[in-house]
């Protein structure tokens, strides 16, 4: 759209004021994470760090190192499983017509909108019964299951756009449905696989509710829960808390910065329409 020069200047001004508003919390977090404990004082939160120190980071790493590892151990398998199951479910709903398939799919999708509180008590009981309560694996199973709706949806939206002729050509070459999926569909699914992978990586990394309910031992807690516990202690060690918050944010931030396109694609598919 062509606009006048004066309004362009106004727009630049507004756009960069907005940038300031978005970035100033980052200033707080980075500034205070770099202060030594001795300088972390109540009235000095806004004053730039005088004596740069990595004390806070060192201590945050000591306290949270194990939890970061736990988060990776959790997030990587969950993302891969979500891709695998999501692709299969999404493909079938997109390309195989059977009775009530639309209704059933709607029921699947509803699963991603429910408040998880409404399944929490039975979930804890069930995990307990099958012996996965209090283990990272229990949290993993939980995330894979409740990640199915969104992953299936993303794949279904993608597969729905594939022309039927492409698949039917494979059939003519003598492949069955499973063969078509493996030899024709999977190889061209990479973009969506990345979207799902990134989406699940971020949302599982950032999850708090399931983690806080299902993992109790500090040694197996993911980073979000450990960070909250760190922040809940009574001695105000801002530098450590801020450093910890930044450490917890870095993996998803990196994913966002380097794979932003896919991240946004995943984000937008959350509103159901592809």
């Amino acid at each position: 759209m062509i606009t006048k020069k004066s309004s362009k200047i106004l727009k630049y001004t507004l756009a960069y004021i907005a940038v300031l508003l978005f970035v100033f919390p980052l200033y707080v977090i980075i500034n205070n994470s770099l202060k030594p404990f001795a300088d972390v004082r109540i009235s000095e939160m806004w004053i730039p760090a005088q004596n740069l120190s990595f004390e806070g980071y060192a201590e945050a790493f000591v306290k949270l190192g194990q939890n970061i590892q736990n988060s990776f151990m959790l997030v990587i398998p969950v993302s891969l499983f979500s891709v695998m199951f999501g692709a299969i479910i999404g493909f079938i709903f997109a390309k195989v017509k059977f009775k009530y398939s639309n209704t059933i799919f709607a029921l699947v999708i509803f699963g991603m909108f429910i408040p998880y509180q409404s399944i929490l008590i039975p979930l804890v009981r069930t995990m307990n019964t099958i012996g996965l309560y209090g283990h990272l694996s229990g949290l993993m199973v939980t995330h894979v299951i409740y990640g199915l709706p969104i992953s299936s949806l993303m794949f279904r939206n993608y597969y729905a756009k594939l022309p039927d002729e492409l698949l039917e050509a494979g059939m003519i070459d003598g492949l069955r449905l499973v063969g078509v999926f493996r030899k024709v569909v999977v190889p061209i699914s990479l973009p969506t696989m990345v979207v799902v992978l990134i989406w699940q990586f971020t949302s599982v990394w950032n999850d708090f509710l399931f983690a806080v309910v299902l993992t109790q031992r500090p040694s197996i807690q993911p980073i979000t829960v450990a960070l909250q516990n760190l922040a809940g202690t009574q001695v105000i060690e801002w530098n450590v808390q801020m450093a910890g918050a930044l450490i917890a944010a870095i993996p998803t931030l990196l994913v966002y910065i380097f794979l932003g396109k896919y991240f946004i694609q995943g984000l937008l598919s959350g509103s159901v329409k592809g």
């Binding site: 950032n206 808390q241 944010a249 966002y256």
Partner: peptide, 14 residues
């Protein structure tokens, strides 16, 4: 867009 990639826990602490 970057705040979207953060956990509510990080946002909350901050």
């Amino acid at each position: 867009l970057f705040p979207l990639s953060l956990s509510f826990v990080v946002t909350g602490v901050l």
